[in-house]
Design a protein around this nucleic acid. Sequence first.
DNA 1: TTGTATGCGTTATCAA
DNA 2: TTGATAACGCATACAA
Lengths: 376, 376
Amino acid sequence: MTSQKATPPGHPPATARATSRDVARAAGVSQAAVSLVLGDKWRGRVSPGKAEAVRAAARELGYRPNLAARSLRMGRTRTVLLVVPALTTEFFARVYTGAARIAADHGFGVVLYPSPEGIGPSHPSPATTPGGRPLRAPSVPDPFDSAAATLDGVIASSMAAEALTALRAADLPLVMLDSDPDDARATATVNLDIASGARQLTGHLTALGHRRITHLAADVRSWTFEVRARAVTEALDAVPGTLLRRQPAALGVDAGLQAAHAALTGPGPRPTALLCDDDIIAAGACKAVRRLGLRVPEDVSVTGFDDLALALAVEPELTTVRLPAEEFGEAGMRALLAVLDGRPTQEPTLPVELVTRGSTAPPPAGPDNGARPGGQ
Amino acid sequence: MTSQKATPPGHPPATARATSRDVARAAGVSQAAVSLVLGDKWRGRVSPGKAEAVRAAARELGYRPNLAARSLRMGRTRTVLLVVPALTTEFFARVYTGAARIAADHGFGVVLYPSPEGIGPSHPSPATTPGGRPLRAPSVPDPFDSAAATLDGVIASSMAAEALTALRAADLPLVMLDSDPDDARATATVNLDIASGARQLTGHLTALGHRRITHLAADVRSWTFEVRARAVTEALDAVPGTLLRRQPAALGVDAGLQAAHAALTGPGPRPTALLCDDDIIAAGACKAVRRLGLRVPEDVSVTGFDDLALALAVEPELTTVRLPAEEFGEAGMRALLAVLDGRPTQEPTLPVELVTRGSTAPPPAGPDNGARPGGQ
DNA sequence: TTGTATGCGTTATCAA
DNA sequence: TTGATAACGCATACAA
């Protein structure tokens, strides 16, 4: 009965990597010393000479600690779940990028959970893949059953909030993104200053002279959209003589088109501006305007929200509110790390910025600027 | 010295979860039996009654195995790395979605590695965040140093191929996406039928009557773009009387605009069609056409590639080649799973589909259809 | 059929 | 300062 190393029976080791014991042997120290040195906890417990020897050996052998073992021992996985409404959107891809960057800086990984009910696919197939198969039927399981999913914490977009309750988030620390600060589920909240963005938008439009504005409101129950609606209403209430209407619109180019069509052809005087809840809806709205034989922005101004790449791709380019997506993800991750460390969290609200481009202009002149040009 | 359970000293357990021993106790069996039953390997080794008791207890306790422990024991992490050129693009977000779905079906997780040199940010800031900080400076480290990174395999887009060599991919199984089948680094390759797409596009344009076509070619060294260029050249060589020119374009709306401007104002007769290497470039090209006082598609036809949401957002909607992004990710993941299982891989090539929309039409009539309309 | 023992690689404690 | 040693939770070989 020797102390020979033996790989576990049944399976060969995936990759023959150096272990801390190999490093210890190479450096002529105990395995524990390796752990201390590499964990930078050797203040007065290992001699400087040996410490350097350990580092050299580790470098030499290309040692990288086995994270499974570390997780097992520590009871923490250094893995965080990011719950988003649907990854296929540029906005959340950027949120992920920011979160992952900060995570990596702290030795954490980020695993994604695109909420099954994924709001607004924003693209052709609403509920099926090109192949016609229902989108993630039993496919994407509860992330807590999934492989990468022994989690230290969760970051969730408010747009995927329902998914959150479904997925029993144990009692993991939970950072909610862009959601009601009073949400009881949240350990911490990180917000964008959406209300300010909405006010900047309405301010821009009223300053241009618009008085009949229709809000193409995302018909998604989500805090962020509620805030937009409220802020728009309040801001326009403060400007005498304005007429605000509201038209619900699903997320997506085509839905935006439909909603805008309805808004522009409905009863009463035609609005001179369409304030859309996101860039995608705005893109659809622009199409609707033109299909009615009207021009953007001469006859109807259109604004978006998000400042996606799309905003520059359409013509005219969209006046919109730039949401700092990556910084948003970064802030969310930082808040979660603070919670995990037991540090106080800052609950920041990130500023947003109005970006004025070609899709807005003063309303058409004329008494009622209303005589409808030849339709369709 | 009792056999009392004790949490590891120093740190409390992250979450008090039931272990297989708890289940065993509850079911009145040994811990090994639990492992057998839940691993579905109890064929003739556990009595049906006890097996059922185990399952009941597991359900009751909400037992979920500790993946760190399992990974440690098995030497496999059930985690796969997906290397993409930049996550902020819709296309790769969709590839990820497909890959993650299949992975989850097999109890695997997917971690993302947006290549540092991330080709084509396709959005405002080329190299810095809004804050001005250089984009992922030492931030995103070698993924093999990162937390989630004890990997069983890698899936990589050819567009991030350089990153691959940098990141010493040990000798992990490597599935390359849309890359040279002869690439020595790849354990397996999964491709889209890009060449067919290019041929469908040229066929569509020549059938409409176009004879002067400029290829707005992505100036990115990547197999997929080389294939496009070759296929376009060969297809047009086969049609007598065609004049193919090629104009390099960086990835991005603005770059597409610039390239198209150059193509339309350069010496020689103006092309009647701009065949763009992706939808983003095509969107830029459309803008260039209009800035020159020309119309799409009456004066100049424009085609894209990818069929992003963008293709429907611009006006006119883009004729483009639909790339089945999610299925692509699925196929990549399936290939990798096959490799990991030692099964033969199928090396599939996924079909792509021409989608005809408003951005293409017959070229303008007239002898040379060339008398340039008043530019600006 | 069942139970018991072992080791995966780490970190942390304790005795030397 | 250092080096043994134990335990994290699981899967498996082996003895009963």
